[in-house]
Design a protein around this nucleic acid. Structure first.
Length: 241
DNA sequence: AAGTGCTGCAACCGCGTCATT
DNA sequence: AAATGACGCGGTTGCAGCACT
């Protein structure tokens, strides 16, 4: 007589210390993963997502709590400038910090700071849309593409869609070269050659009909960004590395 | 001391991606 | 190839605590 399984009412709101203990014990004995079954098996009336979040953000070993150091703050600012709201990537560079924590810290402390700074630094040009964090995030789920200036310096576009093919010297590029939008970097500082990156079939097939057109795949770019972030974050000199 | 507004943080929600069937 | 489920990410919300009046 198998009746339809009724979904138990899941608990919400703040976690109690005893719930933390149950989850911690459960994960330590059974390991991470299968979050959907954790609530059933552990007896916690919490959704899998909730359990996962609680573990990831608070119960996991090596979680660092408390004040952000000046160095961490600085790193967050630099990386946010490079990556936008990609909190998990940023948090990945801050040992013991979680994406949620970094995100909250940004929203409560750094965002204001940076906005104030930007207000002072920018003139009345209408770049509001490009500079808007939310727009950046929507447009920039993938990593930033690159662009070489005729003078030899290089730029990373932080706001456009990675999948677009860059056309050298196009109007679009020129119009988007603004502070906080394109980042100057010295390509010679890196062991990186832009030609190492895959040219996607559609681009290779001649979409733009231009040998300077690149379409970047997400992962290789992320891999590149990792090393770039390190170099950028620690001052490009490499003395810290 | 009480009321109100503000701030910071924990947690939830919706959506996208990936793996499996 | 399509459907399904699990997981991860970023945005948003709700609430507790603090500051101010």
């Amino acid at each position: 007589m198998e009746s339809k399984r009724v979904k138990p009412q899941l608990k919400k709101n703040l976690w109690k210390p005893e719930e933390d203990l149950i989850l911690k014990n459960y994960v330590e004995t059974h390991g991470e993963g299968n979050w959907a079954t954790v609530s059933e098996r552990s007896g916690l009336m919490r959704g899998g997502k909730s359990c996962r979040l609680r573990w990831k953000n608070y119960l996991r070993p090596n979680i660092k709590r408390g004040e952000m150091s000046k160095e961490e703050e600085d790193l967050i600012i630099r990386m946010h400038k490079l990556l936008g709201n990609r909190w998990s990537l940023i948090a990945g560079r801050l040992p013991g910090r979680t994406d949620n924590e970094v995100k909250n810290y940004w929203n409560t402390h750094l965002n204001k700071k940076c906005l104030l700074g930007k207000r002072k630094a920018t003139n009345s040009n209408n770049h509001e849309e490009e500079d808007n964090d939310e727009n950046m995030n929507k447009k920039n789920k993938l990593g930033p593409p690159f662009h070489s200036e005729p003078n030899g310096s290089s730029l990373i576009n932080l706001t456009s869609n990675t999948k677009l093919g860059l056309e050298e010297g196009s109007k679009k590029e020129e119009s988007t070269v603004t502070e906080g939008n394109w980042m100057d970097y010295d390509a010679s500082s890196f062991n990186y050659d832009i030609m190492d990156y895959p040219i996607m079939p559609e681009a290779a097939a001649g979409g733009a009909g231009n040998s300077a057109s690149f379409v970047f795949d997400d992962e290789p770019l992320i891999a590149y960004m990792d090393s770039f972030i390190l170099l950028e974050a620690f001052g490009c000199g490499g003395e810290e590395l």
